[in-house]
Amino acid sequence: MREIVLDTETTGFDPQSGDRIVEIGAVELMGHVATGKTFHEYIDPERSMPQEAFEVHGLGDDFLRGKPKFAEVGQKFLDFIGDAKLVIHNAAFDMKFLNAELKWMNLPQIPWEQAVDTLMIARKKFPGSPASLDALCRRFGITTERDLHGALLDSEILAEVYLELIGGRQPDFGLATVGGSQTNQNEAAWTPKPRPTALPPRISEAEAEAHAAFVAKELGEEALWRKS
């Protein structure tokens, strides 16, 4: 199963108010394993970068000026994601920006059902607990080593968080096989040994007599307990 874990960085919070995407980062998973294939583009938003956005992302006007516009990378992005599930933290935010940009370029919209929202998964799994990406990294012991938010780095971090949310790094509980046999041969070859001393009976003499009487009265000579 192919999945794309992605993140976007933007100039603000609302594309309908003129905010634009300035960075897209995405990593490919195949069967919940990173393949090493990535998509990463800085994008000229064709507007100034607000100071508060610069402080979060570290992407200023001078850096973004001359980078490709969304119209130049939109189709390449669609080609990369294809029909794969899109793993996004707070999917509603990224999806509204992506679809706004795609609409302005007369490119196909991404169906909402194509997105898997890790924020919703985390809130359902840990109700009442912080569910930001940073909070989940702390919960799962994932080292972020970042001062600024970057789309590609955040998507790589989110891929690790996503695997933990769906069951950890070993979703098959260590039962993966190679060549039809378990990878841990010692465990596969282990068999229980008989006890050197039998355990004593755990029923009283009165209980044994009551059972025998019940078998004799209710089940008769054909009772399984009478056969050896």
Rank of each mutant, 00 (worst) to 15 (best):
I88D: 10
G167T: 07
D172Y: 08
L165A: 05
T11A: 02
K193W: 09
R20W: 05
F39P: 00
D7G: 06
F77I: 14
A216V: 10
G168H: 05
S204E: 05
P200I: 07
L29D: 07
R202M: 14
I110L: 06
G150Q: 10
R146D: 05
Y42C: 04
G220R: 03
G180M: 02
R169F: 13
P194L: 02
F97S: 04
E72A: 06
Q185T: 15
G168K: 01
E156V: 07
L64D: 10
A34C: 05
L29F: 09
K227P: 06
E209R: 09
I203K: 08
Q16C: 02
L86A: 02
G12V: 01
D62M: 11
T197E: 09
H149P: 01
A223D: 13
P171M: 03
V73Y: 03
C137D: 08
W112H: 12
G82E: 01
D172W: 07
A100C: 05
E113W: 08
I43L: 10
L148Y: 09
A213F: 12
D44I: 07
E3K: 11
L163E: 03
H211Y: 13
E101V: 00
A198W: 14
S48R: 15
W225C: 13
A92M: 08
A71L: 11
A71C: 11
D117L: 09
I21A: 12
P50A: 09
G18T: 04
D94H: 01
L158S: 06
R65W: 13
R226W: 15
